[in-house]
Amino acid sequence: MAMNRIIVVTSGKGGVGKTTCTANLGMALAKSGKRVVVIDADFGLRNLDLLLGLENRIVYTALDVLAGECRLDQALVKDKRQPNLALLPAAQNRSKESITPEQMKKLVRALTKAYNFVLIDSPAGIEMGFRNAIAAAREAIIVTTPEISAVRDADRVIGLLEANDIKAMRLIINRLKPAMVEAEQMMSVKDVQDILAVPLLGVIPDDEQVVVSTNNGEPLILGKELTQAGTAVSNIARRLQGEKVPLMDLSVPKDSFLKKLRQLFN
């Protein structure tokens, strides 16, 4: 059997879509038949449960497992919509210091026995919570947006991952606005990629539907008809499994006559 994959999803900056990516990617991998567990490593500010719509089903958390108050399988929340997916919740009423990197490794090691993919949703920042999240990981997915502050923080995180011997890193560029890129008022995929110099795993276009799906606790991937962003995530899940899937065409519908004329004169 192929080796189990332990992947941390991280970004440095908060609010770039890390948790949304983890939830949807986990769901997409599960949908393709893999056994997936997603770990919320954001102790004190957990949200992965909400994005997955599993917040009402949490009984125990990772901390209860470590304290010996329950077994690991009792803490796992199995998704009824997608039985291949399980969530290991973080404790909400505790701080990031309430767990150590060693304890995280112990949990992950146990989970790899039953799951093909262990996705760890890292908290924002580069402090203790981040260190816990990367402790057990063998691979990393860096999520960024084409914004100056997000790219800068991603760069910092890439440096820290390298220093921690996590060499298998791949980049997701989230919330790309193709029309703005075309108008050269937003950095392009290539711009960000050139700067960060990490292999690209995928590009997710900005999509208002993400807000709706978050409101409903129904990851985009569960939708009957995938939006562009949903397709992008599903492509990312396929690439993660070694499939060669070309990047989606995100170019804005063909130029108007006036725009073409203007380009002619520039």
């Binding site: 100056i148 890129v181 008022q185 950095m187 711009d191 700067i195």
Partner: peptide
């Protein structure tokens, strides 16, 4: 264009 400004400042 702000794209170039962003790139330059980031570098």
């Amino acid at each position: 264009v702000s794209r170039d400004t962003a790139k330059q400042r980031l570098r």
